[in-house]
């Protein structure tokens, strides 16, 4: 299963990914008409600036477990079993903001999806495009290789999952504070134990 991997040190801040993301999620999917649609599609990838003026592409990591999925009280956020992509069903979203509180990466935004209703939205790994055999729009357009589409690599994802799990369980990293609580590694071993039993 392929996922979008971000290599932030390569990002040059051209914002092409934002443009392509908006176009890919518009109705017409054409850059010439997308900005003029009734409901203008908004990008799901956000480029922040660091202190050193370096650009940083920030988008949903489709964490496992996903804090947003667990926080959502209407079950509007769910994981697609086949692809592992975390998706938001705007029909069920009541715009309560719990997911924004839960997401440790701050990638959720709220925009209109019909007429007068707003819904949460975030990167959906372009699952519609993937069904058509294309790669995510942001990856396609990134010329410097800051966004790539690669096979899921457990080690690479460790940081993301760790962060997400830590959020959920509130377990602290040992380095930050002298704490009697075990680290995630130990905790995962515990879970393995339980499974084994």
């Amino acid at each position: 299963m392929k996922v979008v991997v971000v290599k932030p040190e390569r990002c040059v801040g051209c914002l092409q990914c934002r443009f392509a993301c908006s176009v890919a999620h518009s109705v017409s999917e054409s850059q010439f008409t997308a900005p003029y649609e009734t409901i203008v599609s908004k990008p799901r990838i956000h480029i922040g600036l660091t202190n050193g003026k370096e650009p940083f592409p920030n988008k949903c990591r489709h964490c496992n477990p996903a804090p947003c999925e667990m926080a959502c009280i209407t079950r509007a956020i769910f994981r697609d079993e086949a692809t592992g992509i975390v998706l938001i069903n705007p029909e069920r979203c009541i715009n309560c903001g719990m997911c924004a509180m839960a997401c440790p990466f701050g990638v959720i935004r709220y925009h209109f999806f019909v007429d007068r209703r707003t819904s949460a939205h975030k990167c959906d790994q372009c699952f519609r495009r993937q069904k058509e055999g294309k790669i995510p729009a942001c990856v396609e357009v990134c010329k410097v290789g800051a966004l790539v589409f690669e096979e899921y690599n457990k080690d690479m994802d460790k940081a993301t999952d760790q962060m997400a799990s830590l959020v959920y369980l509130g377990i602290r990293e040992k380095e930050h504070e002298k704490s009697p609580y075990p680290t995630l590694l130990v905790h995962k071993n515990i879970l393995q134990e339980i499974k084994r039993r």
Binding site: N58, P67, H176
Partner: peptide
């Protein structure tokens, strides 16, 4: 969510808090 995560984990802030409240959240 980014800040709430830091509160939960008790992670020290390595960016200037003034930047965060000015909405210049420095993600990297």
């Amino acid at each position: 969510g980014v800040i709430i995560n830091l509160i939960k984990k008790g992670t020290p802030l390595n960016v200037d808090p003034a930047k965060i409240v000015s909405n210049e959240l420095s993600m990297m």
